[in-house]
């Protein structure tokens, strides 16, 4: 049963991250996903210190707020003349450092491990079950990640048109009266919530892997946004299933192996897809 739970958690993390990842990759903001997934750390720790528990909704929204603060700070420094990638770098490293220092200072109060922060402990997730009225209703992680997955599906399908237009042509979207800035921050809020939900199972950097790699692979396979989202979700599910079994065979980090499998899938798409390397080279020779 534990195998099923772990694979389910991995697949849910992968699907909810890669769905958002498609928009980030298309908006050329992949590294903002990286930044948010690091910078929610102090938010999690502070919420943890205040509430004293790991499974509060407060924690999720606290972290989402920090995620939005990150985006806001990056934007602010960018507007004051700092290059965009440098301002991303300054903001997320500073916040992440605050988080690490807080964890180290309150090691006794905070039941968070520094290693866990980076590469997660999906292997232990099935034992941390949620009880309702004395009955176990499955691991907490499944509920947390599942909720964020449903939230992402709901928001994206409700506002698919708005997200699509403001991704491909923000000027047109603004002209049509779509609140572009609002959707920008909505997307970032979703990224923060998914990151926090996935945090314990796959860790900060591997969340980024699930955000960027399947989406970029799907980008090589199709021209249609809806198809791209479906493909990236499928790819992330494949990588979590395969990753789990390979990790099981090698006795290695599960989250790490999942991302490595996603990377291998990317490599295959890079060389063999119609929009991958071969086609591109041929095309540029013709043009």
């Amino acid at each position: 049963m534990n195998h099923v739970w772990i694979i389910l958690i991995g697949a849910l993390v992968g699907s909810s991250c890669s769905m958002l990842g498609c928009f980030l990759v298309l908006r050329k903001m992949s590294m903002i996903g990286d930044a948010i997934s690091h910078s929610v750390l102090p938010g999690i720790v502070i919420a943890f210190l205040i509430s004293g528990s790991r499974d509060s909704l407060v924690m999720m929204f606290g972290a989402a707020a920090i995620g939005l603060v990150t985006v806001f700070l990056i934007q602010m420094f960018q507007n004051s003349g700092v290059q965009s990638d440098a301002s991303i770098g300054v903001v997320f490293t500073a916040l992440f450092a605050v988080g690490v220092v807080l964890i180290s200072l309150y090691t006794r109060q905070v039941d968070l491990d520094l290693d866990c922060v980076l590469y997660g402990e999906i292997a232990y997730a099935p034992w941390d079950t949620l009880h309702v009225g004395g009955h176990s209703i499955g691991p907490k992680a499944v509920w947390g990640v599942g909720a964020s997955f449903l939230l992402n599906v709901l928001v994206i399908s409700l506002f698919f048109k708005q997200f699509k237009i403001s991704t491909f042509d923000p000027a047109l979207a603004a002209a049509l009266g779509i609140p572009v800035v609002f959707f920008h921050y909505l997307l970032m809020g979703l990224v923060s919530i998914s990151t926090v939900a996935s945090f314990e199972s796959v860790g900060a950097i591997l969340v980024v892997g699930m955000i960027i790699v399947p989406a970029a692979t799907a980008y090589l396979l199709t021209d249609k946004l809806s198809t791209m989202i479906v493909i990236s979700v499928l790819l992330s599910i494949i990588s979590s299933v395969l990753g789990y079994y390979i990790a099981f065979l090698l006795d290695a980090s599960i989250g790490g192996t999942m991302v490595v499998v996603a990377g291998v899938l990317f490599l295959i798409a890079l060389f063999f897809s119609p929009k991958g390397v071969r086609h591109h080279v041929k095309f540029s020779h013709g043009a």
Binding site: K28, S30, Y119, L206, G256, K275, G276, V277
Partner: peptide, 25 residues
């Protein structure tokens, strides 16, 4: 490919780090 630099950076960063974590374990 048509993948932009930021995504390429992200892919390489995470996949390499994933390999590193696997090796570390």
């Amino acid at each position: 490919t048509r993948i932009k630099q930021d995504s390429a950076l992200g892919i390489i960063l995470t996949v390499f780090f994933g390999v590193g974590i696997v090796l570390l374990t």
